[in-house]
Amino acid sequence: MSAATVRPKAGAGAGTGTGAPPPRTPAERRRVLGLDRGAWFLLAPALLPILVLSAGPLLYAISLAFTDAHTGRTATTRFVGVDNFADLRLDSLFWESFRIGLVWAVCVTALQLLLALGLALLLNQNLRFRWLARTLALVPWAMPEVVVGIMWQLVYHQDAGILNKTLRQLGVLSGTSGNIDWLTHLSWALPAVILVGVWAGMPQTTVVLLAGLQNVPRELAEAAQLDGAGVWRRFASVTWPALKPVAVAITALNFIWNFNSFGLVYVLTQGGPGGQTRLPMLFAYEEAFKYGQFGYAAAMGVVMIAVVAVLLTLFLRKRLKEDAA
């Protein structure tokens, strides 16, 4: 049989010998394009609100960052290029707020994960009134940020707050003069709002981790227990590997939510005392709505988006490499 009549092997390219699939016929291409159009038609109701309410404002904010948009009855908006970013590079107050924002986001996210993991493991046990405990664990999540902020202002109140009262009863504080004004103290304000952030955001992390624990094979844990593995060994070898993808996903989302926090800290301290709790989102808000510099505030938002995107990319890439290894 001549070489010209040899039929190519299955999966081999037509006359190429590279193993590439044969090109699609015009009828196949039309059929695929028709399916794609049908898929886009079905996705449109979900994509349209995202484009209108998320992508549109984001693109507008990015374009605003390259202008000198500001308030004023006779104000005119001009294109200024990267001038806002050049000014922002030298703005020490913004970068100080950015540092505070990173401290806030990292501390709150890490504590949320650790405490929520412990609570999820506890709620996953076969305990009496477990349904009631799971319901109560969701209470902080169901409360608006403004209500949470006002409630914790009462907890932290210098004279009538339950925290100072409890510390006095325990002998940690002595007399009225020893009361701590937690939300206006330069050293205690940031830890105080971090505690509130952990309390308010922990339920959602608990729910996600508890859902992940439902998918951990009980047979593996029982087999490890029969082999003599202790509680910590079973958690490290069986529970955590199965739970790790869920934990990584919720940690990344929590970091984004926490770094962009505004309402809770604004109600508690409005960025005080002395800017000790002024998160970058609060700084941008003041720049836009207090001083009327919308273009400059938009540039802050663009920088925050870029930095958070880079940090999350590095974090997720490292986790993916660890999982692949």
Rank of each mutant, 00 (worst) to 15 (best):
A142M: 11
A142S: 12
V146F: 08
V147L: 13
V147N: 11
G149A: 09
G149N: 05
I150A: 13
M151T: 08
H157Y: 08
H157P: 00
Q158N: 12
Q158R: 15
Q158F: 02
G161P: 01
G161E: 02
I162N: 08
N164D: 04
N164V: 07
L167W: 01
L173P: 00
G175P: 01
T176P: 08
S177F: 02
G178A: 06
N179H: 02
W182Q: 05
L183A: 08
L183I: 03
L183D: 10
L183T: 05
T184V: 14
H185Q: 12
H185W: 01
L186T: 14
A189I: 01
P191T: 02
V193I: 09
V193G: 07
I194L: 09
L195K: 02
L195H: 10
V196M: 06
G197S: 11
V198W: 07
V198A: 05
A200T: 02
A200P: 03
P203K: 03
Q204I: 11
T205A: 15
T206R: 03
V207Y: 15
V207C: 10
V208L: 12
V208M: 14
L209Q: 14
L209E: 14
L209K: 04
L210P: 11
L210Y: 10
A211V: 04
G212V: 00
G212C: 05
G212M: 04
G212A: 05
Q214V: 08
N215C: 01
V216N: 12
V216C: 06
